[in-house]
């Protein structure tokens, strides 16, 4: 069980240029979130194949929020840590994931889905960090760097 809490600019009021936040409350919000992510990725000069991977990753994480936590938020922002990239944060205050290792296994799902969401998304991103605490919520932070 990981008890780290999420403390960064995403919970403070710091405004980052190019950052956008999409509340996830209903099905249509998944589309909005992935469109925002694709638009930012395009602005940052990602290839169209990478834009699609980024949009797909956002779609998977936004759906996880809806299915497991009902409400949450997707934040997309540019990353300038020596190299150019994009950061996507999927955050919710839902039930949390009791066994992250199992959740990261291909084919494991508690919702009757294909069970490829988390492991598949990890494969298509360059960095993938999941922090979850039962009863508190889940935060997935993923990055993709421009190649």
């Amino acid at each position: 069980m990981d008890s780290r809490s999420w403390t960064s600019t995403c919970s403070g009021g710091t405004h980052v240029v190019g950052e956008s936040r999409v509340p996830i409350k209903q099905g249509g919000d998944i589309i909005t979130a992935r469109q925002q992510g694709r638009a930012l990725a395009a602005q940052l000069g990602f290839s169209s194949a990478d834009q699609t991977l980024i949009a797909t990753a956002i779609s998977e994480m936004a759906r996880n929020i809806l299915v497991y936590a009902k409400v949450g938020e997707i934040i997309v922002r540019p990353e300038h840590n020596g190299k150019a990239g994009i950061t996507i944060i999927a955050h919710d205050a839902g039930p949390g994931i009791p066994d992250i290792n199992r959740a990261m296994q291909n084919g494991y799902s508690t919702s009757g889905s294909l069970g490829v969401g988390l492991p598949g998304t990890k494969r298509i991103m360059d960095e993938f960090l999941i922090v979850s605490e039962v009863g508190k919520g889940t935060t997935v932070t993923m990055k993709k760097w421009k190649t």
């Binding site: 834009q51 699609t52 991977l53 797909t56 598949g120």
Partner: peptide, 12 residues
Amino acid sequence: PDVAFALVRLGL
């Protein structure tokens, strides 16, 4: 093409 590529990478 990009969608096909993403499906393969996701393992779908």
